[in-house]
Amino acid sequence: TTFEIRVGDLRITLHNADEEEIRWAEEALRRGIHADEILRTLEERRR
């Protein structure tokens, strides 16, 4: 599944994310964390 998060002009697309990952990514985007860093962190958490 694919889920797109939008916060203002910012956007990130997550693939195969669970609800916790989606909530975490949305909050991180709101705090101004760059999408590349969010994706990198999620990848590390999945390992």
Score class of each variant (00 low, 15 high):
39 L>P: 01
33 I>Y: 11
44 E>K: 13
1 T>L: 15
40 R>G: 05
3 F>L: 14
29 L>Q: 01
18 D>G: 07
41 T>K: 08
43 E>P: 03
17 A>D: 02
38 I>G: 00
27 E>G: 10
1 T>S: 10
24 W>L: 06
36 D>W: 14
44 E>M: 15
42 L>M: 05
46 R>M: 03
11 R>Q: 07
29 L>T: 02
3 F>D: 14
19 E>G: 08
13 T>R: 04
28 A>R: 07
32 G>M: 05
35 A>H: 06
36 D>Q: 08
18 D>F: 12
4 E>T: 04
8 G>W: 02
3 F>A: 15
18 D>K: 11
13 T>K: 06
37 E>W: 13
45 R>E: 04
2 T>A: 15
28 A>M: 11
36 D>C: 15
15 H>F: 14
5 I>G: 01
47 R>N: 12
33 I>N: 04
27 E>T: 13
45 R>F: 10
23 R>W: 07
37 E>F: 13
44 E>P: 01
1 T>Y: 13
37 E>K: 09
39 L>E: 05
17 A>F: 04
11 R>L: 11
24 W>Q: 02
34 H>T: 12
43 E>W: 13
44 E>L: 15
14 L>V: 09
17 A>W: 02
6 R>A: 09
21 E>Q: 06
40 R>C: 08
22 I>D: 00
3 F>C: 15
40 R>S: 09
7 V>Q: 03
8 G>E: 04
20 E>Q: 11
34 H>R: 09
2 T>S: 15
5 I>S: 01
34 H>S: 13
24 W>Y: 14
13 T>Y: 04
17 A>P: 14
23 R>L: 10
22 I>M: 06
38 I>H: 00
34 H>A: 09
38 I>S: 00
8 G>N: 03
43 E>D: 11
4 E>V: 05
42 L>Q: 01
35 A>M: 03
39 L>G: 03
4 E>Y: 04
43 E>M: 15
15 H>V: 08
32 G>W: 04
30 R>I: 10
41 T>W: 13
26 E>M: 15
35 A>S: 09
13 T>G: 02
14 L>W: 03
4 E>D: 05
13 T>Q: 04
29 L>G: 02
21 E>T: 08
20 E>L: 11
33 I>C: 07
43 E>A: 14
44 E>R: 14
43 E>T: 12
29 L>C: 04
27 E>V: 10
34 H>P: 14
24 W>N: 01
5 I>P: 05
35 A>Q: 08
13 T>W: 03
44 E>C: 15
11 R>P: 02
31 R>S: 11
11 R>S: 15
37 E>G: 04
15 H>K: 06
37 E>V: 13
7 V>G: 01
45 R>M: 12
47 R>G: 10
41 T>P: 00
43 E>K: 11
40 R>W: 11
34 H>Q: 12
2 T>N: 12
27 E>Q: 12
25 A>Q: 00
46 R>G: 03
8 G>M: 03
19 E>R: 08
2 T>G: 15
28 A>S: 11
40 R>L: 11
11 R>E: 06
20 E>N: 10
23 R>I: 10
40 R>D: 07
32 G>A: 03
21 E>L: 05
29 L>A: 05
16 N>I: 04
35 A>D: 03
13 T>S: 04
23 R>D: 03
7 V>L: 05
46 R>V: 04
12 I>K: 02
38 I>W: 01
36 D>F: 14
27 E>Y: 13
11 R>A: 11
37 E>H: 08
43 E>H: 12
37 E>A: 07
10 L>D: 09
9 D>H: 10
10 L>W: 07
10 L>R: 09
5 I>A: 02
30 R>H: 07
33 I>L: 08
38 I>T: 01
7 V>F: 12
13 T>D: 02
30 R>G: 06
24 W>V: 02
21 E>W: 05
4 E>S: 01
13 T>H: 06
18 D>S: 13
43 E>V: 11
41 T>M: 10
45 R>S: 07
28 A>N: 06
43 E>Y: 14
22 I>V: 07
22 I>K: 05
5 I>T: 02
38 I>L: 08
44 E>H: 15
23 R>V: 08
27 E>D: 10
25 A>E: 00
11 R>D: 03
34 H>D: 13
36 D>P: 10
2 T>W: 15
8 G>T: 01
2 T>H: 15
44 E>V: 13
13 T>E: 05
12 I>D: 01
35 A>I: 06
45 R>V: 07
46 R>I: 04
40 R>M: 08
9 D>A: 09
46 R>N: 04
9 D>L: 06
16 N>F: 08
30 R>F: 11
12 I>Q: 01
1 T>D: 15
21 E>A: 07
26 E>V: 15
8 G>V: 02
4 E>M: 02
23 R>Q: 10
39 L>R: 05
37 E>I: 11
9 D>Q: 06
9 D>R: 04
5 I>W: 01
20 E>A: 07
38 I>C: 00
45 R>D: 03
9 D>K: 06
12 I>L: 14
26 E>P: 00
